[in-house]
Design a protein around this nucleic acid. Structure first.
Length: 620
DNA sequence: GTGAAGCACT
DNA sequence: CTCTGGGTGCTTCACC
């Protein structure tokens, strides 16, 4: 029986959560009310044994011992080659306190000896950032299986914004230092495996106390397999297309640069905010009272420049120059350099314990900020292509997930009804706010309503709205007042969130993931207001993260169980991207849609938009 | 090496 | 009138 998240997933997928819950009530229920007591840790003996196991007979008896275990702690040692071109240099294991074994890997054949241990469903695996170990083994043909426990992820649930560094956790929970030798790999990795095993029991207790056990066991830990798979599969690029864009952007950029120099009657480094500020404000005097940054330089950010665009034609050209250089340096030229020699694909690293709200982040490279807004930027998505001619790109994204979550948590009848009947939410909002019939909503009214809807999720103020819409503060205040009158349950929900935070000093997502807001009662107004915006935003953004994580787990399990060739390859917060096998379109498209829609059932239905194309741009 | 500024995404 | 939209990661400049 394949374990499932909630009751969802698998071919018999049934909506798991029938009734909706108020946002501050965890679907996973509450833990014991007792406050978390920091336990007094008894200092550990220091005679730990970290043995290097190199001889065949010793290795065989280690393997036999490993097979007898119900749980083992492990750490896979690798060299530091970048772009997924690393090698495995050793394996560390621990299954009893103060004892660890390190097996140097000089020949990849040796890994096979351990394959049965790694792939055993009976042996659960513990690690600190265990995704790295799973991925390393996967690259060399070994498939990890079995229940996971990751001490990094456990601590992330307990204290999301703290450091989850193994050494620091050892200090905190075990009152021990890591030795961290420069030369002795066996000692380093053996120690890591052994300390991780010890940490596990401390963190498990802590998870229970805080009511995060199921969130860990059923979401964060299983998600590791899905992420390791996505990273392993990687993403293919159309290098020729990117090369073309690079030349073209370079030409555009050089042309724009010379035009800027001519207009400025000077040559300078446009990429230097300091030099640019001096040209615009000292030499050309585009503003009498130019804004300064913290460090006393002139502010030359996009916000400032857009408002000056009418003043002087140089400003538009500077914005263009910035766009071209950004696209070229960050994407068009950088991405091809990150293609792996292993399979000529891009392998990002999804970080599961970084974002304070529960979102993932992506780095080396960041695949979650590939351009889409401008036309030249969009073209970059066209270079994200399927792995070969038998595949297409499929993109599936949640439509307005955060606003739906807010409507559901707030139990706002007006907004819930709009989502239930499938009406355009921004148009509906505009009709309410501006008190006109739906068919009398102008594009400008819709634009304003859309901005308010976004602003709500971020705890934005009249000032923020006026800045974004370039309208007066008075007008912004009027719009917001009208909004809260029409959507009074939204307003109440926001107040409730802040009050909950004031009392508890944290807020929670639908799965009970916490974000601590220790500044919520600060006497410093700016500090306090920042915490208040987080009190509104974190449960919504974090619940969206919870929901897509469940969907990812269920989709990954289904693709595996059905032995499909289609692979999930990217996550961009509310979007999942797939390498879709051409023969599997009719099976995969509806199933992915269904698994995303039903990951969690709210008062408001989830809408998922799916597109298929020859590249990421066309799939949208 | 590090912080600031700026900007790409959701 | 304080301050002023949540969350990330990457590149460049400028300075240490």
């Amino acid at each position: 029986m394949i374990p499932r998240v909630f009751a969802v997933g698998g071919s018999t997928a049934a909506p798991a959560i029938k009734e909706s819950k108020p946002s501050q009530l965890s679907m996973f229920g509450k833990a014991s009310p007792a406050a978390t007591e920091t336990q007094q840790i008894i200092s550990e003996p220091t005679d730990a044994s970290y043995q290097t196991v190199d001889a065949d007979d010793k290795i065989n008896s280690l393997i036999e011992k490993l097979k007898e275990q119900k749980e083992i702690s492990l750490a896979v040692a690798t060299d530091e080659a970048e772009n997924f071109d690393f090698n495995i240099t050793g394996l560390a294991f621990s299954f009893s306190v103060n004892e660890a074994f390190f097996v140097p890997i000089k020949d990849k054949g040796r890994l096979q000896d351990f394959a049965e241990v790694f792939s055993s469903e009976r042996i659960s695996k513990t690690g600190h950032n265990i995704k790295q170990s799973i991925l390393s083994l996967k690259k060399f043909g070994i498939e990890m299986q079995g229940q996971l426990f990751d001490t990094m992820l456990a601590h992330y649930l307990i204290e999301p914004e703290a450091s989850h560094d193994l050494g620091i956790l050892c200090n905190q929970y075990l009152s021990t230092q890591l030795i961290a030798s420069d030369t002795d790999e066996a000692k380093n990795y053996g120690e890591r495996a052994e300390r991780t095993l010890q940490l596990k029991s401390h963190l498990e207790k802590e998870l229970h106390v805080r009511g995060h056990w199921r969130l860990g066991r059923e979401v964060e830990m299983p998600l590791v397999y899905a992420l390791a798979s996505m990273e392993f599969e990687g993403v293919a690029l159309d290098e020729a297309a990117l090369n073309g864009m690079s030349s073209s952007l370079k030409k555009d950029s050089e042309k724009t640069q010379s035009e800027i120099f001519k207009l400025a009657e000077a040559e300078f480094n446009i990429a230097s905010p300091k030099q640019l500020g001096e040209i615009l404000f000292d030499k050309l005097k585009l503003l009498d009272k130019a804004k300064k940054t913290k460090t006393g330089q002139y502010a030359t950010g996009e916000e400032v420049l857009v408002k000056l665009a009418e003043e002087h034609e140089i400003v538009r050209k500077i914005l263009d120059f910035r766009e071209y250089e950004k696209l070229r340096s960050t994407y068009v030229d950088a991405l091809p350099k990150m293609l792996s020699k292993f399979d000529n694909r891009i392998h990002t690293d999804y970080r599961q314990a970084v974002a304070a709200t529960g979102r993932l982040s992506s780095n080396n490279p960041n695949l979650q900020n590939i351009p889409i807004r401008t036309e030249k930027g969009r073209q970059i998505r066209g270079a994200f292509v399927p792995r070969d001619k038998n595949f297409l790109t499929m993109s599936a994204d949640y439509s307005q997930i955060e606003l739906r979550i807010a409507a559901s948590f707030a139990k706002d009848e007006t907004m819930t009804e709009a989502f239930r009947t499938g009406r355009d939410i921004h148009t509906t909002t505009a009709a309410k706010v501006f008190k006109v019939d739906i068919d009398k909503v102008t594009p400008d009214m819709r634009r304003k309503a859309k901005e308010v809807n976004f602003g709500i999720l971020y705890g934005s103020t009249a000032f923020g709205l006026s800045q974004n819409l370039n309208i007066s503060r008075g007008e912004a205040t009027e719009i917001i007042d009208s909004y809260f009158k029409e959507f009074s349950a939204i307003k109440k929900y926001m107040d409730d969130s802040i009050n909950f935070a004031r009392e508890k000093e944290y807020v929670e997502t639908i799965l009970g993931r916490r974000r601590y807001l220790r500044d919520i009662n600060s006497r410093n107004m700016a500090t306090r207001q920042f915490a208040e915006r987080n009190a509104i935003n974190a449960p919504i953004q974090g619940s969206a993260a919870d929901i897509i994580k469940i969907a990812m787990i269920n989709i990954h399990r289904w693709l595996q169980r059905e032995k499909l060739k289609t692979k999930m390859i990217m996550q961009v917060h509310d979007e999942l991207v797939f390498d879709l096998h051409v023969d599997e379109q009719e099976i995969v498209k509806p199933k992915v849609t269904e698994l995303m829609r039903t990951a969690v059932i709210l008062d408001v239905p989830m809408d998922v938009e799916v597109g298929i194309g020859k590249n990421w741009l066309e799939a949208h």
